[in-house]
Amino acid sequence: MAANQTDALTRKVDDYNSETDSDYTSYWRDWFVATRGHEYFCEIDEEYLTDRFNLTGLQAEVQYYQYALDLITDVFDFDCDDDIREQIEKSARHLYGLVHARYIITTRGLQKMLEKYKKFDFGRCPRVFCRAHPLLPIGLSDLPHTKSVKLYCAKCEDVYSPKSSRHASIDGAYFGTSFPHILFQVYPAFIPAKSNERYSPRCFGFKTHAVAALARWQEQKRDEQDRRLAQVGIEVKREDDDEPEGSSEGEEFSR
């Protein structure tokens, strides 16, 4: 029954403390992406979801597959008890995530995620020298139930854990291991200039030897790579690394 369905949906919305609690929309996907903790997801087009080809192989992965798909595409019409309903809801969320991983590496999906990237929807890199560079969601595995979603910074080329615990329960497979790298292949103009800036720990003004030796070794590796690439005609764009050697800090204290 429609009334039954509405009740369940309302309850769901309350559960997730969604912003759209009063005049919530009846579209499942709108509700899903607006749910707290789902900030990294974009909305999958209806056309994509209704093309069976895009869902190849997912039947085996998702319980109540057809009902879940009906729920996602807002054609769910099945009178069932709350327990089953709950199961179908769960399956629908899982199915949406799995399709999402495929969708965001399509032309349309990349566009949508790029827009979110430009709005800093995925947060900013916590590394000081990345200067709050925007992040992209990434999975460390393409298999579901393996690892939660992580965030990739294209400036330092490293992955970080999301700050908020509500993202720690999102499956990384819903974004996949390839997504950020495909995005930058398709949109090379968004590849940031790399930075040579780095932190050199000091003790009473002096660099510490052990860390400094490692830093020199790393910088040697960097220069080797740059030379290697220069030989094949690739120039690596790196930002200035003029580190002030004798730092002028603390001058106010000098007596």
């Binding site: 292949q185 790399k194 490692l214 070794w217 790393q218 690596v236």
Partner: peptide
């Protein structure tokens, strides 16, 4: 991803040892 790719790795040194 190969380092020669336009979007290839350039920051490996930062996390190397």
């Amino acid at each position: 991803v190969n380092e020669r790719a336009r979007s290839g790795p350039r920051m490996g040194w930062l996390r190397d040892k």
